[in-house]
Design a binder for these strands. Structure first.
Lengths: 203, 203
DNA sequence: TAATCTACCAAACACTTGTTAGGGAAGGGT
DNA sequence: ACCCTTCCCTAACAAGTGTTTGGTAGATTA
C-alpha cells in the first residue's frame, strides 16, 4: 500500500474547478498574498484544512489558475498566428482574441497582471517568463511586419508601440465585468478603432 | 509630562523621507502585503523594531507614501486645469504631467496601481476614492468638451475612451525606469501621438 | 560636567499564517 | 453486511507576522 493517495490529480475534476473558480475570484479581489486560505475556504463554504484534500498548497492553486489560463490563451493565439493574415488583420485578431480571453478568465487575467512580475522570478513559475517572451515576439514581430509593409507608422518607437498596444488591451481586465453592456467583441472593435486611428477627429 | 512623545511628526523629516523612499521601493517590487517590516528594515540597514521610532505602523508608511504622491500629483493637475486650455491641449498637458509624475514617483505610482482598488474600501484610505473620482471628472469632462468642440471623435463610447486613455498612461509606471533612453516628455509625446492619431498609416 | 535628545538595538509579545494528522459521515459496489 | 471511496471537519503545529518595551551609545544642549 502506498504511503499516500493523491486525490487531487485523479479525482473528478468538477469540484476542483469549482474551487479554483472561487479561489481565483478571491485572489483577484484581494491579491494573492493578502488572501488567506481561510478566506478561500469561507468563500467556498468549508474550512481551511479541507482545501488540502483537493490541493496540496495555496501556491499550487495559483499555479493551476495561471497555467490553465495561459494554456487556453495560447490555444487561441497560436490559431491566429498560424492563419497567415496580414499585419493589421493579425493585430485585429489578436486583440479580439485577447478580449474574449478576458471575458472568460477575467479573474485569472487580473491575478496575472498583479502578480506575474514577481512570480516569474520563482522557478516554479518560469513558464510566466516564457509566455511573456513568446508574447512579445508575436506582437513585436507583427508590428514590425506592419511597419515594413507600410500599414503601421514608421515614426514611432516600436517597443513603445508594443507596450502601448499590449497594455491598452490587458489592463481592461481590471475594470471589465462579464455581462456588462458591451460584449468582448464590441470592446475589441472600439479599442482597435482607437489604437489604429486615434481618438482625434481627422482633419 | 505627557505619556508619550511623537518623534515621528516633530523630528527632522530628512530620515523619514529617506526611509519612506526605500519602503516605497520594496512595496513596489514585492507588493504591500508580501513586504514584511523586516524586509524594509533590511533594505534600510536597520532592525525591524527601529522603524517604529519613525513611523507608528506599516500601514502609516503606505499611507504617507500614497498621500504624498497624490498631493503632488494634484498640484500639477490643478495647475493644468486652471490654465483654461482647449480640450486637446488640456489632454496633452495632463498626459505630459502624468509622465512627469511617473518619473518622479514611479514606486508610489506602481503601489497605487496595485493596491488602490482594495485599499479604497478602508476608511483610512478613502482619499483614494475621492482622488479617483476627481480624476475621472477632470478627464471625462475634458473628453466631453472635446467631443462637443468636434476635436475628438463622437462615435466612440466616451467612458471606454476615458478608461483607455487613463490606463495607457498609468500602466507605463509598471515598465518605466528613470534614466532610460526616453525622457518623460518624449514618452508623453509618442503616447499622445498614438492616442490622438493612431498607429495606422493614414491613407 | 550633567542633562537631554536622537536614533537605533535586543528581545520578546500576541496573533495570524499555511499546513498536517486523524477521524467520521454519506453513499455506492459487491 | 462489509468495504472502500469521497469529501469534509476538528484540532493542532511551527513559522512568520506587526508591534511593544526597555535599554543604550553618541551627539547636543544647558
Amino acid at each position: 500500500m502506498p504511503t499516500k493517495k493523491k486525490p487531487q490529480v485523479t479525482a473528478t475534476p468538477e469540484r476542483r474547478r469549482e474551487l479554483l473558480g472561487t479561489a481565483a475570484e478571491v485572489f483577484a479581489a484581494q491579491g494573492y498574498n493578502a488572501t488567506t486560505v481561510r478566506k478561500i475556504a469561507d468563500a467556498a463554504g468549508m474550512l481551511a484544512g479541507s482545501l488540502y484534500y483537493h490541493f496540496d498548497s495555496k501556491e499550487s492553486m495559483l499555479d493551476e489558475i495561471l497555467s490553465g489560463f495561459l494554456t487556453e490563451l495560447w490555444d487561441g493565439y497560436d490559431a491566429v498566428l498560424a492563419a497567415g493574415l496580414g499585419p493589421r488583420e493579425t493585430i485585429e485578431a489578436l486583440v479580439t482574441e485577447s478580449f474574449r480571453e478576458i471575458d472568460r478568465h477575467r479573474a485569472a487575467v487580473a491575478i496575472y497582471q498583479k502578480e506575474s512580475r514577481h512570480l516569474s522570478a520563482q522557478p516554479r513559475f518560469q513558464y510566466l517568463s516564457d509566455s511573456q517572451q513568446k508574447f512579445e515576439k508575436a506582437w513585436l514581430g507583427t508590428l514590425e511586419r506592419g511597419v515594413a509593409a507600410q500599414v503601421f507608422r514608421a515614426d514611432l518607437d516600436i517597443r513603445l508601440t508594443y507596450r502601448f498596444v499590449r497594455d491598452t488591451v490587458w489592463v481592461a481586465a481590471s475594470w471589465y465585468r462579464p455581462g456588462g453592456q458591451h460584449s468582448p467583441d464590441e470592446i475589441a472593435r472600439q479599442y482597435l478603432s482607437m489604437v489604429l486611428d486615434g481618438i482625434a477627429v481627422r482633419t
